Simulated scan of single mutants.
Amino acid sequence: MQGKTVLVTGGGGSIGSELCKQLAKTQPRKLIVFDQCEFNLYKINAELQRRFPELPRAAVLGDVADPVAVQRAIREQKPEIVFHAAAYKHVPLLQNQVREALHNNLIGTKILAEAAIAAGVARFVLISTDKAVNPTNVMGATKRAAEILCQNLDRQGHTRFTTVRFGNVLDSAGSVVPLFREQIQAGGPVTVTHPDITRYFMTIPEACQLIMQAETIGRGGEVFVLDMGEPVKISYLAEQMIRLSGKRPGTDIKIEYVGLRPGEKLYEELFHEQEQLLPTGHEKLRLAKARIYDSAEWSRQIEGLQQACACRDSAALLADLQRLVPEFECRP
Score class of each variant (00 low, 15 high):
Q2P: 01
K4A: 05
V6C: 08
V6T: 03
G11R: 04
G13Q: 07
S14M: 02
C20D: 12
Q22E: 12
P28M: 08
P28T: 09
K30I: 04
V33P: 02
E47C: 02
L48D: 04
R50S: 13
R50Y: 07
P56H: 03
P56I: 00
A58W: 01
G62A: 12
D63L: 13
D63E: 15
V64T: 14
V68I: 10
R72K: 10
E76V: 14
Q77Y: 07
Y88W: 06
Y88S: 10
N96W: 03
Q97H: 13
Q97F: 01
E100V: 06
L102G: 01
T109A: 15
T109M: 06
A115T: 03
A115V: 03
A116L: 13
A119V: 02
G120R: 02
V125E: 09
K131D: 14
N134L: 15
N134H: 12
N134A: 14
V138C: 02
G140I: 10
K143W: 04
A145T: 06
C150L: 13
T159Y: 04
G167P: 03
L170M: 11
P178T: 03
F180Y: 15
A186Q: 15
T191V: 10
Y200V: 01
T203L: 08
I204H: 00
Q209V: 02
Q213P: 00
I217H: 04
G220C: 13
E222T: 10
E222W: 09
V232Y: 10
V232M: 14
K233I: 01
I234N: 04
Q240N: 15
I242G: 15
R248P: 00
G250E: 09
I253D: 05
K254R: 10
L260G: 10
E268G: 08
L278E: 15
H282P: 00
K284G: 06
I292P: 00
Q301P: 02
I302D: 02
S314I: 09
A316C: 09
R323G: 00
P326A: 11
R331I: 01
R331Q: 13
P332E: 14
